[in-house]
Design a protein around this nucleic acid. Sequence first.
DNA 1: TTGTATGCGTTATCAG
DNA 2: CTGATAACGCATACAA
Lengths: 342, 342
Amino acid sequence: MKRQKRTTIYDIAQKLNIAASSVSRALSDSSKVNAATKALVLKTAAEMNYQQNAMASNLRKGNNPTIGVVVPRINQNFFSNIIAGLEEVTYEKGYNLIICQSNELHAREVDCVHALINQHVSCIIISIAAEAGSHQHLQQVLDRNIRLIQFDRVVDELDTFKVINDNEKASYDAVMHLINQGYSRIALLEGPQEIDIFRQRKEGYLKALQKSGFPVIEELMCENAWTKELGAQATTQLLSLPEPPDAIFASTSDFSALGVLEVASAKGIAVPDALGICGYSNEPFTEITSPSITTIDQFSISMGKAIADLYFQELESSDLNAEPRVVSIKPELIIRKSTTRN
Amino acid sequence: MKRQKRTTIYDIAQKLNIAASSVSRALSDSSKVNAATKALVLKTAAEMNYQQNAMASNLRKGNNPTIGVVVPRINQNFFSNIIAGLEEVTYEKGYNLIICQSNELHAREVDCVHALINQHVSCIIISIAAEAGSHQHLQQVLDRNIRLIQFDRVVDELDTFKVINDNEKASYDAVMHLINQGYSRIALLEGPQEIDIFRQRKEGYLKALQKSGFPVIEELMCENAWTKELGAQATTQLLSLPEPPDAIFASTSDFSALGVLEVASAKGIAVPDALGICGYSNEPFTEITSPSITTIDQFSISMGKAIADLYFQELESSDLNAEPRVVSIKPELIIRKSTTRN
DNA sequence: TTGTATGCGTTATCAG
DNA sequence: CTGATAACGCATACAA
C-alpha cells in the first residue's frame, strides 16, 4: 500500500506553470485574481483531487475554526441533544466540533481542556463535572484568550459567557402546580448541593412552599436521590413515614421520578390520586409510562443552538468590550397524568 | 482586551539561552538530551504556561492523531452510545474526536467527509445516511490513504473495515422466539430496503418462517414502518385485516414497536396474550412500558469500543497487508413481557 | 493581476 | 549532547 503524497498547491502550480501564491488566491476566491486563471486553477484542482490541508492553513492564519466541547457524558439525552444543537449551527458556519467527555471526573476534565488548548480551538464549551476541583484549567483557557462558554452546570465565580436554565423558576412552577392540584405534603428529592443547578432547584421548591404558606418539613427532603435506584430507595423511606407525603418532586431527574413511580405502583398506591409525581428533564420515556409523568422540558436542542449562537454573535460583533453575558433559558413545565387529579 | 501572544518554544529557548531545537527535544522527552537541561526546560515551560501548538506539531509530523466520526444523528441513543464508546478508547490513546452529523442527508454527509479529509484526520468512522447517493466521497477517503471504518449501516461494495451487527441472526432469533411462544401469524414492520440492515432483518424473519414451516404472507409485511407514527398506522391496517396477525415484529425500531403497543392498548387488545410485540434496539423506554417490550440489544457502547479497537490494533500491528476486516457483533434478544405468554 | 519572499510553530537532519 | 537550518503546506505583504 503505497503512501501516495497528497497534492498541494505547489503541485498544481507546477502543472499550470504559475506561482503557488496564485493558486492559493484562486482557491480562496480572492478578488485580485484573473477570472480565467481562477477557473483554470479550480478545474485542475478538482482534477488532481486537491483538498486543502487545514492544519497548514489554520497555522498560517493563526486561527482554527473549531469549537471544543466538554460534557460529563456524551450519551445522556440532555447532553447529546445539546451537542446536536451545537452541531446544527457550527456546521452552517463551517466550524468543526471536537467532543470530549469528562465522565464526571475532574482530572479527566482538566485533561480534555488542555488537549483543546493545544488544538488552538477558538472556543471551549463546557458543562463541568460533578466531581469538585479547582478551576485553574478554566482560568488558563481565559488567559489564552480562548472564548469560554459554560452551560447548565457552571462555575459562578468565573467571568465567562453562561447559558443556563432558570432552574429555580422551573422548580417553583412545578411545586406551585402541585399545590394547585391540591397536594399539601410535598416531598423533594434533591441532588448533590455542591452543584449549583441542584441548589437552585431546591430554592425554587422552598420559595413555592413559602409563597403558599406551607411549612418546610425537613424529613420530606431527601438528599442525593439522583438515580432511579436512589429515587426508589428514598420513596420507600418517605412512604413509611408516620405522615407520608402526598406528592414527590424528583428535582434531580426523570429517572429518579421513575423510581418513585415504580415503588408506588408496587405498593399499590394510586398515582396521581394518592400520590403526585413530578420529574425533571422531559426524558422521552416520561411520556409513555403509566401514568405519564409530569416533568420539566429544558429545550436542550435549542439550548445547544443558543450556545453556539452566542459565540458567533459575539465573534461577528467583534465588540471587544462586550461584557460576559448570561443567557437564561426558561424551562417549561409539561403537565401530564402523574399530577393531574380531577 | 489585549491579544496576548502564546508562548512558543522560541520564547522559552530565549529565556534559557539555548536553541529552540533543544527545547523541542526536552519537551518531547527525547533520549538525546541532558537530564539537567530537560528538567530545566520542563520547569520553565510550566512557569511560562507553555502549551504546545498541535497544529504546528501535526503539520510538521505529517499526521494528526484525530478521528473523524460521521453519524446520521448525534442525539439518538444508538449513535450517542457509539460515540461514548469510541471516546472511551480514543481518550486513552490521546486521540481527538471530531463529530459530524449527516442528518440522514447525503449531501451533508459528503460535506462532512470532505471537511474531515481537510483536517487530515487519521481515520474516518462512518455510518451512512439513509438518503441514497454515490460513494465517491468514501472512495476519496481511501484514495488518500485515510483509514475508513464503516459501522452499522455500511456500503458492502466498499473494501473497508466494517463493524456490524448480525442483524439477520438477531431477527431470526426474535421470530423463532415468537414462534416458540405459540404465535403463528407474525407480521413484520420493515425499514427502507435500500439499507442493508433492514434487508438483513427481513431476511432473518423470512428464514425463521421457512425453518418453522410457516408460510410467507405478503399482506403481513409492511414497508417503511420506521417511526412511532408509521408503526401505529401500519398496525391499524394490520389489525383490520380479515385474518389479523397475532404478533408483530417491529424490525425497524423500538419506536415503531411503541406505536404498535399504543394502538393495541387503544383498541383494548391484550398484549401479550392476543398480540405479541417485539421491537429492535433496546431503547431505555422498552423496559418501562406496560407491558415491557421484548427487543434486541445491540451493545452500542461496546460496539463503539470495538470500532476504535479495530483502528488501533491495525495501526499498531502496522501490518500493511492486513485484509480489510469485518467484525460482526452478535446482538442479544431481550425477552420481556410483551411476548411472554404463559 | 501575478510572482517572490517570508513566517506560522514545530520537528528532523545534519554538523559540530 | 547541542545548535543551526530546512521543511511541513499555506497565506500574505510587498514588489514587479
